[in-house]
């Protein structure tokens, strides 16, 4: 299966440890993710007011690239655009839904982009890699597992952007299961906890670090209380807030005990036993030692 792929800015800078293992595990599952030619930043957060139409331009331009890939035969009849970063997934999806629901808006955007050779026809479907894997079936994942995650207890952290609002969520907004199913397929243990979709503080990390420190601490403490060894996520911003910000948590709360936070792709990579260099452990702030030798 060949899929057009939108990486987004962060995967090329601070979150290479999300992308590199993801591309490798996808390949082993028979999914070839082909990076869009000339992609541009999606804008990170979606604009929510009614009169900010032009702010949706950035996402829509990327959809043109998908149409072009199809036209050039790089992918065959593939209207799905796959993403890895939860924020990009959400922003692209929300813009896309708005275009699909409001032909007038789409028309305006197309008119504005008159220099583009193609017009966006509303046909693209923004997807995240996780549901693509779910569609393949967990059995397919199980088959690729070389080193089952025996005795490792994993807290699945969804954050906000994979689940909400409901019409772009990849799973039930209040009772998601997809990460837990993945962990089970990898041979790991899941925990049942209440913080899996509680916000980590998001972009407040830039100028209101304290909010993030408090929220992240609450999430990690809850994971610990429920017996987790490691937290997984698919969002580079959540990862930063939960992982790198542990430094700040420890400064404020000296008794705080750290916990590794890794990307779902790294966890899959470990279980698939992919090349060590591709796992990108060095990019994690809290070293996930429990995953080195188990």
């Amino acid at each position: 299966m060949k899929l057009p792929y939108f990486p987004g800015c962060t995967l090329k800078t601070t979150a290479t440890n999300l992308e590199i293992p993801a591309l490798e595990v996808a390949k082993r599952l028979g999914i070839e993710m082909i990076e869009l030619d000339r992609w541009n930043c999606c804008g990170v957060v979606s604009y929510l007011v009614s009169d900010d139409l032009m702010k949706h331009l950035a996402p829509v331009r990327n959809f043109l690239r998908v149409q072009e890939m199809n036209a050039k035969g790089i992918v065959e009849n593939e209207n799905r655009l796959v993403t890895l970063c939860s924020m990009c997934y959400n922003t692209l999806s929300l813009s896309n839904k708005r275009m699909q629901k409001n032909p007038d808006d789409l028309q305006k955007i197309n008119d504005f982009m008159h220099r583009e050779e193609t017009k966006y026809d509303g046909s693209v479907e923004v997807v995240h890699l996780l549901p693509i894997i779910r569609e393949l079936g967990w059995e397919a994942v199980r088959k690729q597992v070389k080193k089952p995650l025996k005795n490792i207890k994993v807290a699945s952290y969804y954050g906000c952007m994979l689940l909400r609002p409901k019409d772009v969520g990849i799973d039930d907004a209040e009772d998601p299961k997809i990460l837990e199913e993945l962990v089970s397929a990898l041979g790991g243990e899941t925990i049942d906890w209440d913080s899996g979709s509680r916000c980590c503080g998001s972009y407040h990390t830039v100028n209101n670090k304290d909010i993030v420190v408090n929220l992240s601490k609450g999430i990690i403490d809850d994971a610990r209380k429920n017996g987790a060894d490691v937290i997984i996520t698919s969002c580079p911003l959540c990862a930063f807030n939960l992982d790198s910000r542990q430094k700040d948590i420890m400064e404020k709360y000296p008794e705080f005990e750290s916990m590794p936070v890794v990307f779902f792709s790294q966890l899959m990579g470990a279980a698939f036993d992919i090349e060590k260099e591709k796992l990108g452990w060095e990019a994690n702030y809290i070293s996930p030692e429990i995953l080195f030798n188990y």
Binding site: G8, C9, T13, A15, Y47, C85, Y203, T205, V206, F240
Partner: peptide
């Protein structure tokens, strides 16, 4: 938000989505 107030150290480690998100 005031970009001047973000320390160099922070600017180096912050993921770009955080900065772009906050500014937007």
């Amino acid at each position: 938000i005031d970009i001047e107030k973000i320390s160099e150290e922070e600017a180096r480690i912050l993921p770009s989505i955080a900065i772009v998100g906050a500014f937007r």
